[in-house]
Simulated scan of single mutants.
Amino acid sequence: MEKFKKRWEITENWQLLFPIAGIVALGYSSYKISNTIVGDFGLFALVISTMVLFFVLLKFTLFLFKKLENKWILDAKWEMIRVFIVFAITGSSSMFIGRPIIKLLGITKENLNPILYWVLFIIIGLIFYQILLVTFGWLFGQFQFFWNFEKKMLRRFGLGRFID
């Protein structure tokens, strides 16, 4: 355990919450994906595919950590897990919020060209994504990181003049 704490620069026991939450979320995601793909093949196939997918996703996530470790300016490595959790929650939440908003506006696949519908759906999702990213970043104690990330993203969209 000490080796794990040292590797992730964990100095307080409460900081272990984030690696545990990350592993649980990765396991749940692996199960859900495996259940979608091989759910009809029985419990044994589901368990094996979940374990294989968990291992592959874990390796991919650790690869991302290595790549982003020098790019993102954070105080400790365990904070990267917190940042990934914020990105995951924000992506899901923006679609959950965007879906009812688009229905409230009366926009459906049936009354609009499907391509135009998806373009509008993505635009509405992106608008809420920007707001939720900073909000969840603040809730998880990473406001400054996400505010800087948001400013950089808005500049790339050509909206930098509105934030400076």
Results as ranks from 00 to 15, higher is better:
Gly137Trp: 02
Ile107His: 11
Gly98Ser: 09
Gly141Leu: 07
Met1Val: 11
Ile33Pro: 02
Leu62Gln: 00
Tyr129Pro: 04
Arg7Gln: 14
Gln15His: 05
Phe146Trp: 04
Glu2Gln: 07
Thr135Val: 07
Thr108Val: 11
Leu57Phe: 10
Leu53Cys: 03
Arg82Thr: 13
Ile102Arg: 04
Ile37Lys: 05
Val83Lys: 02
Tyr129Thr: 08
Ile97Thr: 03
Trp78Ala: 11
Gln15Glu: 15
Phe140Trp: 07
Glu79Ser: 01
Thr135Asn: 09
Leu104Gln: 02
Phe44Ile: 15
Gly137Cys: 07
Ile73Tyr: 12
Val47Ile: 15
Ile124Glu: 06
Ile131Ser: 09
Met1Cys: 05
Ile85Ser: 01
Arg99Asp: 10
Gly125Arg: 02
Leu57Pro: 07
Asn113His: 01
Ile10Pro: 10
Leu26Pro: 01
Glu150Trp: 14
Ile81Asn: 08
Trp147Gly: 01
Asp75Thr: 10
Phe128Ile: 04
Trp14Asn: 06
Gly22His: 03
Ser34Cys: 01
Glu9Cys: 00
Ala21His: 01
Arg156Lys: 08
Val56Cys: 09
Asn148Gly: 00
Trp72Gln: 09
Leu57Val: 00
Leu112Asn: 14
Leu46Met: 14
Leu133Asn: 08
Met153Gly: 00
Leu46Val: 13
Gly91Asp: 10
Ser94Cys: 14
Gly125Tyr: 06
Val119Trp: 01
Ser30Asn: 09
Leu16Arg: 03
Lys3Cys: 04
Glu110Lys: 12
Ser49His: 11
Lys77Leu: 05
Leu16Pro: 05
Ala76Val: 05
Thr11Asn: 13
Trp78Gly: 10
Leu126Phe: 05
Ile101Trp: 06
Met1Ile: 10
Ile124Gly: 10
Phe44Lys: 15
Val24Ser: 06
Gly106Asp: 12
Arg7Ala: 14
Ile97Asn: 04
Phe4Trp: 15
Leu133Pro: 04
Gly91Pro: 08
Phe60Cys: 03
Lys109Val: 11
Phe128Arg: 07
Asn111Ile: 12
Leu126Asp: 13
Leu74Ile: 01
Ile73Ser: 15
Phe96Gly: 06
Leu132Asp: 00
Ala45Pro: 03
Thr11His: 14
Asn35Thr: 03
Lys3Val: 13
Gly22Arg: 03
Asp164Phe: 04
Phe65Lys: 00
Ile101Arg: 02
Ile20Gln: 05
Ile37Cys: 03
Val38Met: 04
Gln142Trp: 02
Ile127Tyr: 08
Leu46Ala: 13
Ile127Asn: 07
Lys109Ala: 13
Gly39His: 14
Lys151Thr: 06
Ile81Thr: 13
Tyr28Leu: 15
Thr11Val: 12
Leu57Cys: 07
Phe18Arg: 13
Gly42Arg: 02
Thr61Pro: 10
Lys109Met: 13
Asp164Ile: 10
Arg99Val: 01
Trp138Ser: 04
Ile20His: 03
Trp8Ile: 06
Met1Asp: 09
Thr11Ser: 14
